[in-house]
Simulated scan of single mutants.
Amino acid sequence: MVDPVFALLVFAVLGTVAILVFWPRVGIAARLVHSERITERVLLEDALKHIFTCEGIGRICSVESLAGQVGTSTGKAAALLSRLAESELVSSEELGPRLTPAGRESALRLVRAHRLWERYLADRTGVPAGEWHARAEQMEHTLSEEDTDALASRLGHPAWDPHGDPIPTPGGELPEIDRLTLAGVEPGRTVEIMHLEDEPREIYDALLADGLGLGTRLDVVSRSDQIVQLNAGGRDR
């Protein structure tokens, strides 16, 4: 015969476990579903940004490039593109996915939040420059439009992020930038760094450690297909 006290104890334990697992909104199951939804949303938003970046530099976005960028399988990347197409944020074209007007608007909101947060980290905190990008990658998914506008106001509505990239306006306007790369500068010319790419981080950190940053003036000494020799502050680079 089962001990009534033992049976009652088992029932109480099972009931407690059930509450912890299945309680609406705060139970473990609810939290897992919520976490999964957040992860899916972040992946979709990262996919939008990747397509936006590819379009900006004239590169074709592929399933493989998207998978590499967001760190997932090609099957998952293809599913993300399908989801974006179903939401009418992306159109499928012969050369690859393209942002629709709605997709570009969503991507620009993410870019605006990202670059404003980098500006905040650069101007208002002591966070090392090499960490700005990674931290902004996280915050861009949590800032609402209202939060982003409030941040812009707090910072005085900056036009540029600390890497020299333009910050989209609230209306989604992004100016066209006409810049030269070092590979296109003839020897004998003096140029000023107006943009410093922050990825890969190892190269970015090395450039900063060598004293190269926005506003640094460089004398182009010589140039070949593989190497550009520079002089900055009396030092050859």
Rank of each mutant, 00 (worst) to 15 (best):
S62H: 05
E94P: 00
E94S: 04
L43M: 15
G156C: 07
L8W: 05
S222Q: 09
V5F: 12
A12T: 14
A77S: 13
G156T: 06
A79Q: 13
V26L: 14
L80P: 02
A209Q: 12
S106D: 02
E64V: 13
R189Y: 01
V5Q: 12
H34C: 04
L218C: 06
E55H: 08
A7N: 07
F52S: 11
E94K: 02
L89R: 07
P158G: 02
R112F: 13
G188T: 13
L196G: 01
Y204A: 04
L214W: 05
L212M: 14
R41M: 14
A85C: 05
P170C: 05
L84Q: 12
V2K: 13
S92C: 01
V185N: 10
D161T: 01
E118T: 01
R98S: 01
C54G: 13
L14I: 10
E36K: 04
L81E: 00
A47K: 04
N231H: 08
D178R: 14
A152Y: 10
A206Q: 14
Y204P: 03
L95F: 09
K49I: 09
E86S: 08
C61V: 05
E202L: 14
T181K: 10
E192P: 01
G172N: 10
L66D: 01
M139A: 15
D3F: 14
M139W: 11
Q226L: 09
V111R: 08
S91H: 00
A18P: 03
D225L: 06
L44S: 08
L208V: 07
H141Q: 05
H114Q: 08
T148W: 11
S144Y: 14
G56T: 04
R25L: 08
H163Q: 09
E93P: 00
E40P: 01
I177D: 07
S65I: 12
G75M: 06
G164R: 00
I203P: 05
V5Y: 11
G58R: 11
F11C: 04
P24N: 09
A113N: 06
T169P: 10
G130R: 03
G215W: 00
V127A: 06
H157P: 00
S106E: 15
W132G: 00
V221E: 12
V185L: 14
S87L: 11
V70H: 10
E86H: 06
L212P: 09
P166G: 02
H195R: 10
S92K: 05
R98Q: 05
V63A: 04
M194Q: 11
C61W: 01
V220G: 03
P200T: 08
R83K: 13
I227D: 12
L208F: 06
S87H: 08
D236R: 15
R41L: 15
L20N: 09
T16A: 15
E202V: 11
D3I: 13
F11H: 10
L44F: 04
A30S: 14
R109F: 03
A152H: 07
V13Q: 10
A29W: 03
E202T: 15
G68T: 10
H195L: 03
R104C: 06
V185A: 11
L84W: 15
P101V: 02
L207P: 00
E105L: 04
